[in-house]
């Protein structure tokens, strides 16, 4: 067992995670991502630092509490206007946060007992995480599941992710790494022996479009995918179907061709149709909602795209 003291910044640990790889899994979400995809439905995953979050539903109002106002050293929290509490006729004054003054110090979260204010992003050691995820080993064993390390971009915290995956394999836990693929090839090389499955995003086969929309080109992503395939790694390719970006037949055909070229390495392709459920999460950490608003693709459209990929002899599922 490694004695590393490297810490990772984690924004969520989700038990009974059933969408991120085979069986019943625990998914560990690491904070920070080099891409800036406009459809991202995990806004809390983007920044590398811890961020103050606020869930209005949990707030009991300044009438009964309001301790956060006094606790804030920057004077960033004030009483808001009285509104009707949802589902009741009671008036309640929620707090209002001036994000321009807030530096995410987290002092307010320490006095917020209802947990309406909390710091998104907590530091964990590998040992702490291993202890936590090992609790569900009986469920992994029965279901053929394990642990998925996700993000953000987990390989942006490369050292930590490596130690974590290694620790998991030492405990004989099935590992999956959910990655954008946008990382230094040596990071990929390092985790390869300890990663049973890569959940790997292919967002757009056209590099210039990829750069315009996500902020980074795709060459490195495609190279890393080839590297994984050549080294005998297994890939579960994830294709977000985003209106007017990745939803063209052409893009899907190119994706299919690329996957086919990786041979047996690709075990599954998942189509992830755009949805607009992420909006509420933006409101927890930002004043304005920056997420892409679009019409979700129709079922017929998704079925057509699925067919294109299946014609390459690939196994495809839709989420």
């Amino acid at each position: 067992m490694s004695e590393s003291i490297v810490k990772g910044k984690v924004y969520d640990i989700q038990g009974f995670s059933v969408q991120d790889g085979p069986g019943i899994r625990t998914t560990i979400f690491l904070k920070g991502c080099p891409l800036s995809c406009p459809w991202c439905h995990s806004p809390e995953s983007q920044a590398f630092r811890s961020q103050l979050s606020w869930i209005s539903m949990r707030c009991i109002g300044v009438e009964q509490c309001g301790k956060c106002i006094k606790a804030c050293p920057k004077g960033a929290i004030k009483a808001g206007n009285a509104v009707k509490k949802s589902g009741t006729d009671e008036a309640i004054s929620y707090v209002s946060i001036d994000r321009s003054l807030c530096d995410d110090c987290g002092d307010c979260t320490k006095v917020c007992y209802p947990g309406a204010l909390y710091l998104c992003g907590e530091d964990y050691t590998v040992e702490e995480l291993l202890k936590r995820v090992s609790k569900d080993i009986p469920f992994y064993d029965e279901s053929g599941g394990g642990v998925t390390v996700s993000g953000g971009e987990a390989l942006s915290q490369a050292e930590f992710t490596f130690e974590l995956l290694k620790g998991l394999k030492e405990r004989k836990i099935h590992t999956a790494l959910d990655t954008t693929g946008f990382t230094d090839p040596k990071n990929i090389q390092q985790v390869l022996p300890y990663t049973d499955l890569f959940l790997y995003d292919l967002k757009n086969m056209d590099s210039s479009q990829h750069k315009i929309v996500t902020g980074v080109p795709n060459e490195r992503i495609l190279d890393n995918a080839r590297r994984i395939a050549e080294a005998g790694g297994k890939l579960q390719i994830r294709v977000p179907i985003i209106p007017n970006f990745s939803d063209s037949e052409e893009n899907i055909r190119l994706t299919g061709e690329f996957c086919r070229s990786l041979g047996d390495a690709v075990v599954l392709i998942q189509l992830l149709p755009y949805h607009d459920l992420g909006i509420v999460k933006y409101q927890r950490i930002y004043d304005d909602v920056k997420v892409l608003k679009a019409e979700p693709p129709s079922d017929e459209k998704i079925m057509e795209l699925k067919k294109i990929l299946e014609d390459f002899g690939l196994t495809v599922t839709v989420h």
């Binding site: 009974f16 059933v18 019943i24 469920f139 279901s143 599941g145």
Partner: peptide, 17 residues
Amino acid sequence: ETGMAKLIALMKTYFNL
């Protein structure tokens, strides 16, 4: 079907425990 299989595994684990 995958969801169902995972539910069955969840229940079986509970029973095993």
